[in-house]
């Protein structure tokens, strides 16, 4: 009844591809907000892995973990954007190459 033709590894490969695209974005983009969105996408791809394992192993704990990851991601997004606004107010830029005040 619930049999699908898609094996677990397909979901995992999709998640790996999305994660790597997120890594490309974090490493190549210079706009701090875009870097931030790419981090959200990496979190999402890990969520996909958790939900896939949860469904295939028949264990609900994976979905509970995804719920908590989403709550933490929401808090992180709000705090991060506030920090970006504060930096923009001081330095008038969101270019991560120019924000080097904490660089040793």
């Amino acid at each position: 009844m619930n049999i699908t033709e898609i094996p677990l590894s397909y979901y995992l490969v999709l998640s790996a591809i999305l994660f790597s695209i997120g890594v490309v974005g974090v490493l190549t983009r210079r706009n701090a907000i875009i870097v931030f969105i790419c981090i959200e996408m990496m979190l999402n791809s890990v969520n996909l892995t958790l939900v896939a394992f949860s469904a295939f192993l028949g264990n609900p704990n994976g979905q509970i973990l995804v719920f908590f990851v989403m709550a933490v991601a929401a808090a992180e997004a709000a705090i991060g954007l506030a920090i970006i606004i504060a930096i923009f107010r001081n330095k008038m830029t969101v270019n991560i190459d120019e924000i080097n005040i904490m660089k040793w």
Partner: peptide
């Protein structure tokens, strides 16, 4: 490694069971 989605998955995905 399981080959297909577990039969329980339909049960625990709902709002009620979560």
């Amino acid at each position: 490694s399981p080959a297909q989605i577990s039969a329980d998955a339909v049960k625990f995905g709902s709002v009620e069971s979560i």
